[in-house]
Design a protein around this nucleic acid. Structure first.
Length: 1098
RNA sequence: GCUCGGAUGGUGGAAUUGGUAGACACGUUGGACUUAAAAUCCAAUGGCCAUUAUGGCCGUGCGGGUUCAAGUCCCGCUCCGAGUACCA
């Protein structure tokens, strides 16, 4: 009787579905049966319109094998499946066709289910979830409300209800709390708090909630009326339609995931995940330890009042002159000294003068900034020509300064007269115009991981977007700075990052003061500093940081060296080991690690800053301007968000006519007519009713794709009470978390991070009792397609077979792989139907024969047409998609399952080759034959011989180990070897074939069930005990020793395992072949490893 | 640049702690069966040189090293893949 896989597979798939064979038991159903739970989960698919290709089931097959194995091992296995059914493709399809996304999603799911069912997965479909079902997203909304109602306490490292924070505020304000919050919160006392209105209180609380509304910078495309993700922008234009994109601030919901940075990082240590995924998360979280330091800004001189014009009047190159000016001050000429004696300390009728002051790119001798009067004396520093003096005066005039010049002689001989002239002039002048500096800005906070290099600071750089930039920029530099900011705004963040080589920046004209040396430090802006990381400002240490170094070189900023015995003439010295600090006051001669500690100590004890840990992880924007997503359970009262009461969930997605944003740029939900919340009747009502007293507008954004997928693993745990709870306590206590998770590694920093975040949050608030969602994870590789190409003459309508290409320029064109057989022969007729544009083309066959349209293409067998093959990602656009349905039709589901496993290590990417399936199909046929004699099922009840037992137990051992290690490709090989050996032995004994059937059932469940039934069992094989390996069947008395000479194996020799080392050596040396190899030489050494090898050296 | 993987026949891959490199398949070649094809079965298949042989030499990306013995361990490269990126 032949192996009719189609009938067998259909029969058992039906059986499993009817008997609910794979239904997992809830704890209360277990009764006496105290099976331990085991939860195996696949990352649920997004049901796309394209259906499944042969690459998709790879992970599902692996997890299915594992699930079935665990059932054989007597676990209560939970192995569910569902659909991540909200998402962009359905919405885009809806925009194009007007079809409701729910409709297409439903159709896609139906198709997915049909395809999945054909492969024989042991899913418990009773627990299916769909993220777009209101009964599911009710709980996604519920979790959002819990997040809104929570804040994060850093001291306790957990989330707590917001009501606890209100109590803290009532008792002591916000001065001494250590909680996660926005960074722009003003301090307030308990009295302040009680004096606030409830709206004010709400505004403040919003800055502490774990999900909050905030102005976020987004890529806004006015033409498309939507926000674009970074990868939807190419060269500053939208990918679709090439419309301009601008950075725009929008009110968006954000998730305060940054609060969990430390726990997300430390939690990784205990997970059985691959190092590469853990590393990706560690990088993403990006913890760096260092210090935050405050650099005071010199813009606000003491004692001059707030009406005084700016102190800083230097130009773009002024930083180069600072040192010179200092020198000049220290070493004045005689004339300067005399005049300064008379001017300093507001002696001259209370007018304050400064000496050797920077204005634009000049150092002027004296200046009264209030009146804008410059006094210059001729001396050793002014040997310039008259022309130069005039040019200089001209520039100073343009900057709003009057210039008076006196000769040395005049000052020395007629000081009184000079002073009088100056005073007269001063009194005749209006106050110089200047912006009033704000009182709030006290300095620039920077974050550094290298506080030890603080004495190497020679400038500071702010991100162009930094709030302080506008405040500190001097009038002289205003134009340059504004121009620069304008230029950077035009570039998207991504472009900026891509173009690392070009060094750009501009001097603000402002100076900060070094906290230790009190020296002025020029403040620049540059786009190599990111507003989004740290404080958006850096203390630049060019000798120790390559980017600072490059910037300094480019703008000719000094590069002081603070590393002992290092050469920084070519590049910065960024190493942390084997060097000591120099030119750094109290840090001199300290090795770097000690210097860091000392520097932090000094910074803290002087009040310049404090030690700080910084994380790269940013809060996640949670709003999308889309239709096909979860609606927020939020309505707005006076612009303040309010949550809909939990009792009234779900808030269903409204119906709209078109799925595009509105004409006014609102998200698609802005098109809904019935989208207002009636707080009296607790229901959604028409927008017309909005009165802002009882009826309020609802949120128009929807949640992002990762909302629903961040908690679905817990939803599967519940069966009955799905409407009352997202999962009952009993169920959560029993199943705990996912024991084994299977999916692609592309979710390393998305889904896998967000679900860890939500799990931790739900645990903090007592809704879950596990800290992590997924204990062990397997990341399957991608199955690649073997694309087929024909070669077309670039200049003629001629298409060539692989080996018939003449010396002309050709172009490769994809041919659908379904038109190519396993020998790479193309079905030309099919190709013309597939690409009608070539219906008039000539086809040059392998033998040079030319076929063209009109001829009988069936005659193509007179010569073949071959395609060339190339491995590419499997995708519709490359016409290399292989449909699992076709494989099931032709080879069977069991063959498909075995083949996908047999291809290679599961985590590795590898090309699909349909031809290879004949190997596994042949194996299944051989397996089938073991149980049959011709057409009859024949199994002997006599006892099997030793060899058969040895083969069986060898197989049990290897397969058990392989499944545990997830080396599923080698277990398929092992089965092949086993069946080959048993065939050789003509073994048809029940005591061998029955365990073999169980052994193979996780891999090829249909054939196993069929054979099991034929063996006389009337229950499914699914819960049979897995065969246990017994050592005794493998015990050997002899070993075939490889005998090697100088490490090279020359021949083998079978020897008794009981022999001692000496006996083995003797036996080997007696061999004629040994003597032949030695050719009369005496071996220097003979290495004998009993049971392994003999090596003769000499 | 940084982080993590990887490189073995014509192809996918095996070799779990250093111990017979190439398991198991695909493909190819030859043969049997057949009117023929399919299916099935048998044999060969890393390269080179031999062929009277149970024969010799070379072989796991490249160059060194450790060892009786290296695909496996160490040092230095090259190339490929993935992730991430001016992270201060």
């Amino acid at each position: 009787m032949a192996y009719h896989f189609n009938d067998i597979e259909a029969k058992w798939q039906k059986y499993w579905a009817e008997h609910k064979t794979f239904k997992a038991k809830q704890p209360q159903e277990l009764g006496e049966d105290k099976k331990p739970p085991f939860y195996v989960l696949d990352m649920f698919p997004y049901p796309s319109g394209a259906g499944l290709h042969v690459g998709h089931p790879l992970g599902y097959i692996a997890s299915d094998i594992y699930s079935r194995y665990k059932r054989h091992k007597d676990f209560n296995v939970l192995h569910p499946q569902g659909y991540d059914s909200f998402g962009l493709p359905a919405e885009q399809y809806a925009i194009q066709t007007g079809q409701h996304p729910a409709k297409t999603t439903k159709a896609n799911i139906k198709r997915y289910r049909e395809q999945l069912d054909r492969i024989g997965f042991s899913f418990d479909w009773d627990r299916e979830v769909r993220t777009s079902n209101p009964e599911y997203y009710k709980w996604t909304q519920w979790i959002f409300i819990q997040l809104f109602g929570s804040y994060y306490d850093y001291d306790e490292q957990k989330a707590k209800p917001i009501s606890a924070l209100v109590e803290v505020f009532e008792q002591g304000g916000n001065a001494s709390i250590n909680v996660a919050c926005d960074d722009d919160i003003a301090p307030f006392t308990a009295e302040d708090w009680s004096s606030y209105s409830s709206d004010e209180k709400e505004h403040i609380l919003l800055k502490y909630r774990l999900t909050y509304l905030a102005e976020t910078e987004v890529n806004w495309c006015p033409a498309l009326g939507t926000v674009l993700a970074n990868d939807e922008i190419v060269n500053g234009l939208s990918e679709r339609g090439s419309h301009p994109v601008v950075r725009k601030k929008m009110k968006q919901w954000s998730m305060r995931i940054s609060a969990y940075a430390e726990r997300l990082l430390s939690g990784l240590d205990n997970l059985e995940w691959t190092d590469s995924i853990k590393d990706a998360q560690r990088n993403w979280i990006g913890k760096s330890v260092g210090a935050s330091v405050n650099f005071p800004i010199l813009a606000f001189p003491e004692g001059e009042g707030t009406t005084t014009p700016r102190y800083m009047t230097g130009g773009n190159n002024a930083h180069l002159l600072v040192e010179k000016a200092q020198n000049n001050r220290k070493n004045p000429t005689k004339t300067e000294a005399v005049l300064w004696e008379a001017l300093k300390g507001k002696q001259l009728s209370g007018f304050k003068f400064r000496q050797q002051h920077l204005i634009d790119d000049f150092i002027v001798d004296f200046v009264c900034l209030k009146k804008g009067l410059v006094i210059e004396v001729d001396g050793k520093y002014h040997e310039e020509t008259k022309q130069y003096d005039e040019a200089r005066t001209d520039i100073l005039n343009k900057q709003g300064f009057e210039v008076m010049r006196f000769t040395n002689e005049k000052v020395l001989s007629q000081l009184e007269e000079v002073l009088e002239k100056i005073l007269t002039k001063l009194e005749s002048l209006q106050d110089r115009k200047g912006k009033v500096p704000p009182s709030g800005a006290r300095g620039i906070d920077v974050f550094t991981t290298r506080p030890d290099t603080i004495f190497g600071v020679s400038f500071m750089t702010l991100a162009p977007e930094h709030d302080l930039v506008k405040q500190i920029t001097t009038p002289e530099q205003k134009e340059a700075v504004e121009h620069y900011i304008g230029e950077t705004e035009k570039r998207s963040e991504r472009d900026r990052l891509a173009d690392v080589k070009t060094i750009t920046g501009v001097f603000t004209g402002a100076y900060a003061e070094h906290p230790f040396t009190k020296e002025p430090i020029p403040i620049w802006i540059g786009d190599y500093v990111l507003a989004s990381y740290g404080t958006g400002a850096v203390m630049a240490v060019p000798c120790g940081d390559q980017r600072d170094y490059d910037f300094a070189k480019h703008f000719d900023i000094p590069i002081p060296n603070i590393f002992k015995d290092t050469d920084i003439s070519e590049q910065a010295f960024a190493e942390k080991d084997n060097t000591q600090i120099a030119n750094s006051d109290f840090l001199n001669d300290l090795p770097i690690k000690k210097a860091i500690k000392r520097a932090i100590h000094e910074i803290e004890s002087n009040g310049f800053g404090k030690s700080k840990t910084n994380y790269r992880l940013r809060d996640a924007v949670f709003s999308r301007q889309r239709y096909w997503g979860e609606p927020f359970p939020v309505y707005y009262v006076n612009g303040l968000p309010k949550m809909i009461d939990e009792k009234h969930l779900p808030l269903n997605l409204p119906e709209i006519e078109k799925y595009l944003p509105t004409e006014t740029g609102e998200p698609p939900l802005g098109r809904a007519d019935v989208w207002a919340w009636d707080t009296e009747h607790h229901k959604v009502v028409s927008n017309a009713g909005v009165n802002h007293t009882t009826i309020f507008p609802l949120e128009l954004n929807t949640m992002p794709g990762w909302a629903g997928s961040s908690w679905y693993m817990f939803r599967y745990m519940e069966t009955d009470k799905r409407n009352e709870v997202f999962a009952s306590k009993e169920a959560l206590d029993y199943w705990q978390n996912v024991d084994f998770y299977v999916g692609g590694s592309e979710h390393a920093t998305g889904h896998l991070l967000y679900s860890r975040f939500w799990t931790k949050f739900l645990k903090d608030r007592g809704f879950l009792n596990v800290e992590e969602p997924f204990k062990k994870m397997l990341n399957q590789g991608m199955i690649l397609g073997e694309s087929a190409f024909v070669k077309k003459d670039m200049n003629a309508n001629k298409i060539y077979s692989e080996n018939a290409v003449p010396a002309v320029e050709v172009q490769k064109i994809h041919a659908d792989v379904n038109l190519v057989n396993t020998s790479n022969e193309l079905d030309i007729e099919g190709f013309i139907k597939f690409r009608p544009e070539f219906k008039d083309a000539e086809f040059v066959l392998q033998n040079g024969k030319v076929l063209s349209f009109g001829e009988d293409l069936g005659e193509a067998s007179n010569g073949t047409f071959l395609v060339s093959r190339e491995v590419e990602k499997m995708s519709k656009s490359k016409y290399n998609v292989v449909n699992p349905d076709d494989i099931c039709d032709e080879y069977g589901a069991d063959a498909l399952r075995l083949y996908e496993m047999f291809l290679g290590p599961i985590e590795q990417s590898k090309p699909w080759n349909t031809a290879g399936l004949s190997g596994v199909l042949g194996f299944l046929k051989k397996l089938w034959k073991l149980y049959h004699d011709g057409d009859n099922f024949v199994v002997s009840d006599e006892s099997a011989d030793k060899k058969a037992f040895k083969t069986l137990h060898k197989t049990i051992k290897k397969v058990t180990e392989d499944i545990e290690n997830l080396s599923l490709n080698t277990s398929v090989s092992t089965f092949m070897i086993c069946v080959n050996e048993l065939t050789q032995l003509k073994c048809n004994h029940r005591e061998i074939l029955e365990p073999l059937c169980v052994l193979i059932s996780p891999f090829a469940p249909h054939i196993a069930e069929e054979l099991w039934e034929k063996l006389g069992h009337n229950e499914s094989i699914a819960y049979e005990a897995f065969p246990i390996f017994e050592e005794k069947y493998l015990v050997e008395s002899t070993k075939v020793y490889p005998i090697s000479f100088n490490g090279k194996m020359k021949f083998t020799l079978e020897l008794d395992l009981s022999l001692s080392k000496a006996e083995i050596e003797e036996a080997v040396m007696q061999q004629e072949r040994t003597q032949k190899q030695l050719q009369g030489r005496t071996p220097k050494k003979v290495i004998v490893v009993p049971g392994k090898i003999v090596n003769i050296v000499g």
